[in-house]
Amino acid sequence: MIPSAFDYAAPETLAEALSLLGSAGDDVKLLAGGQSLIPVMKLRLADPSMVIDLGRIAELSGVRDDGDALLIGAMTPHHQVATDPLVAAHVPLLAKAAATVADPQVRHRGTFGGALVHADPAGDLPAPALAAGATFIIAGPGGERRVAAADFFQGYFSTAVGDGEILTHVRVPKYTGWGAHYEKFTRVAQQWSIVAVAAMVRVEGNSIAEARIGLTNMASTPLRATAVEEALAGSPLTLEAITAASAHAAEGSDPASDLNGDAAYRKHLAAVLTKRALVAAAGL
């Protein structure tokens, strides 16, 4: 399968990329790892007349310590997020989720930012980014703006990144003293999530002080399992308390029905997987 012809540019700085993007018209696509865009171009579901490759812009890649947070470059490959020592130390939830994406070859090319901007409801990075309270740094012709995770994911494959803009970094607060787990449910290897749950828990003594939970593929955007979080705050650290709270996981969700399961099945999965994720995150 051969994509339609396009013009190609590979700028080496963000400024150059923004100016190319500004002058290229509507029919332009940014290329990150290409692990979603190239398959779609091969099927000719996308046929941009120009492609701007972000792959040579060094300033967009890598993980940096930024005081009370980590700054993760949009072009950082999944494999690096999954194995980076700073991510493992401060936001292990993201490392665990990145390690479940696709397969090793796709993780070597596909990028953290590309997956977040692509915003597939079944994608494995949006729910952890939401649960971790990430801030998205977006560059455009008018400079830089910051968008909270709750406002970033706007709908089915749609985010706050507008035409003429580039996601440059994601700022994720450090979580000290939290346990984390990403529980992904699939039927076969190398599959997208049917449902997955991202959980972080802070335990104090024998009780759960705080929990942050993100749901993958339970609506057109990632969701926080707010009802579970509220039920758990201050509750005893017991299997009974976690099971009772997890029963509320699907409240407010609106999952799709497809060949992998109908909406009712997904709601059932959300409760079961939330319990498993919390048990693992709390180290019970």
Partner: peptide, 16 residues
Amino acid sequence: HLDGTSVKSCTMFAVQ
């Protein structure tokens, strides 16, 4: 392998 790590060459442009 691209610079020593595995990639799927059907999902990359030669220009990359």
